[in-house]
């Protein structure tokens, strides 16, 4: 596995720029989803998930998961990760 440092990226959460830590990229039904953590405070972090979509230029972008069932599926995988 790659080192953890190689799996970080910058995100803006509620107008604040933060460093996101990629936990895992998973595929569900042929779509890719990235599960990542954004620090909330010194002790806790929010666990977030976004769909990874490759744009026309071949770059990966993050798209919000609108489907509730998909969110539940991602949550199930997160539960497995943290179990």
């Amino acid at each position: 596995m790659e080192s953890n440092e190689s799996q970080k990226f910058i995100v803006e959460v509620d107008g604040v720029t933060k460093e996101a830590d990629v936990l895992k990229v998973v595929g569900i039904d042929g779509k890719r989803y990235v599960i990542y953590a954004v620090p909330k405070n010194e002790e806790e972090s929010d666990i977030l998930a976004s769909e990874v979509v490759t744009d026309a230029e071949g770059y990966d972008t993050l798209v919000d998961i609108e489907d509730a069932e998909t969110r539940k599926n991602v949550l199930a995988l997160v539960n497995i990760m943290f179990s």
Partner: peptide, 25 residues
Amino acid sequence: SILKFKENVSQKATAAKAVIGSAKN
């Protein structure tokens, strides 16, 4: 995939994020 992701993901995540939950660091 990861290399590509790392290199290319830099857009705003405000609209992209789906909060799954929170966890201890």
